[in-house]
Design a protein around this nucleic acid. Structure first.
Lengths: 343, 343
DNA sequence: CCATATTTGATTGACGTACCTCAAAACATT
DNA sequence: AATGTTTTGAGGTACGTCAATCAAATATGG
């Protein structure tokens, strides 16, 4: 009833331990025919590598890089903090974890950042980036050289990645619409949606889900075209101030990107009590916004979970370990003034 | 810069490897003075046991038991399924995981169930039980014999347990109130709260949070005294039918326990469109209830996360490993018809 | 058929901890 | 001082994998 080991594999496939090792670790010098014989033994015995022994025996630690946009918004700061905390508390994983920030305002920036990573010394990349052809190609290129890639926060659907580490952003958008529409008590009015960049998949998905529910359930509210805030608090603040002066019928704002501090600071000055406001991510600004009644709800993705999950997934992909879908599902939390936990 | 090993400890504390081992694993035959010398070395070097090597080297697997109420409600079924799935996908943990169900309608039942566990062969217990003196004593007794105990789902605050694996039930109650009150659009009316057993801590906490927010924010709604449903669908159904006939002014129902299928089945027959209804936990009944518009929102705790977390915590307590608070925090999810994921 | 390349086998030593045995040393008791 | 008891040391094996070496077997091309 014990789990099979490499020895069992070798015996069952009638090859030596060395050959099993070559197959398992993708080392060269094994005939196709032999590989499939070992593969067959793996399937028949239901072998899966003992992660404990593997980690223990591995000489070189894995090198994983988190590539994030260079931007000084508060959400990125909390994300980076979570990554560093995970890295330090999980020293037993034998993984070197680095955070690299690169400008991503243009697709060329981002793909250049990817290409300038030393792919030789790299085992895995967790990347948060907009979805553009040049980025997709850079990612595919990296994968071709044996580097595992997972998109985090914002998906890259056509970049050949098996897993995405982040929330279901369509569901997040739907939730935002539900809260905005449900809490609103006006008979008509306009709803503004502020995103980061148009190419950001996370925003596209959120908008998609948001619009669907607004259409289905809250057709009396008019959803305005997207405004791009570029995840920048200053720009968001300007946009919101302008919006409030131009649209006296504004009934709600959905900030589907970063820059919450700009939103709350605008609301503090020119907001009104009938405005329903939903934002994303738990930061200082969003917490204060909830407490002060400027925001009605904040939709939160746990950055610690995202950091841990990304590392687990990269490691599993690299080592050929199974991935537990249910464990890696990132949940959406909804915080309001009423259920805000202590900081 | 490498992590210190037991060898480093031995050298630094000027004792032998065997002594370090005795101290680390709590084996007898070491003077107090020596123990503290080793302890000092542990602190100074910042030693923490390599979990991979420890699991690998351990001969006997740990034996962990989940003790749950014997009741055939749907939530318990999903919880048990999650436990078994975790057990089978984490064979590498070298832990034997058992589920024991025992009647818990009276405190004596439950404490008897605890006492009848073979504490010799037991390393850890994850227990879901009401909070009564006899249960508390039985738990304390078990701990005195070296068995680690974590309450799951429902806390046991005075049973000497370091960790609770479950959601913040006060916050859950607050959230329920927010959703009930926020979605409701009546100017007055009554709100019914249905719990399981009065002694269940999870229910007490939910009620606490629920009442607080209703008082603070929705004082125009009258919250009725608790009704005990004993987590039984049949009983809940009867209660709800009676309630709806007796209180025509009923504006909302908060089902803070199991038995959701009884609730939805009652609503299907005698419900009305102006009723706002909140329930807990994702089961077949609650999913169908959302889809059919009988329930407005369901507050969900991820049973898979609870099962995994309980095992991780028990293992960490038993092996003296650190526990990552942020990883073990169980999140609350809110599902509505609008953001319901595929099954 | 040979020479050469490719593929496979046999073996070994880490990795860090658990767990065991046996003997030596320190301590306590009379 | 002699005895027994408690505490400590020394050393080894095992866990399952990685990683490396060197030799042996097999395949390939001319």
């Amino acid at each position: 009833m014990d789990r099979p080991t490499v020895h069992d594999l070798a015996r069952h496939a009638r090859v030596s331990l060395a050959t099993v090792d070559r197959v398992l670790n993708g080392r060269p010098g094994v005939r196709e025919q032999t590989i499939s014989r070992v593969q067959k033994a793996i399937d028949e015995l239901g072998y899966s590598r003992d992660a404990n022994a593997a980690t223990l025996a591995r000489k070189k630690p894995h090198r994983f890089v988190f590539l994030l946009p260079r931007s000084n918004n508060q959400f990125l700061a909390t994300l980076m903090e979570a990554i560093h905390e995970t890295a330090s508390t999980n020293a037993a994983l034998r993984a070197n974890i680095e955070v690299v920030q690169a400008p991503m305002r243009t697709p060329e920036d981002a793909s250049h950042a990817i290409r300038s990573l030393d792919s030789e010394a790299l085992d895995g990349l967790a990347i948060m980036a907009p979805e553009t052809p040049s980025i997709r190609d850079a990612v595919l290129n990296l994968q071709a050289r044996g580097v595992q890639v997972v998109p985090i926060i914002s998906d890259l659907p056509n970049a050949g990645c098996d897993h995405f580490v982040g929330i279901n952003n369509v569901a997040a958008g739907r939730t935002a619409a539900l809260l905005l529409g449900g809490f609103s008590n006006v008979s008509d009015g306009a709803i503004a949606v502020i995103g980061g960049q148009a190419m950001e998949r996370s925003f596209v998905d959120r908008r998609l889900g948001f619009d669907a529910v607004m259409r289905e359930r809250f057709a009396h509210l008019e959803v305005l075209p997207t405004i791009e805030g570029f995840d920048d608090a200053g720009r968001v603040e300007e946009l919101v101030i302008k919006l409030l002066s131009q649209r006296p019928d504004l009934a709600g704002i959905y900030l589907a990107s970063s820059g919450t501090s700009g939103l709350t600071s605008a609301l503090r000055n020119v907001g009104n009590a009938n405005l329903r406001v939903i934002a994303h991510d738990m930061t200082r600004a969003s917490r204060d916004g909830l407490v002060d009644g400027l925001l009605d709800a904040v939709i939160v993705q746990d950055v610690g979970h995202i950091a841990r999950s990304a590392i687990r997934v990269l490691r599993a992909l690299k080592d050929g370990l199974p991935i537990s879908a249910s464990q890696e599902r990132i949940r959406i939390e909804i915080f309001t003034r009423e259920n805000l936990p202590d900081p």
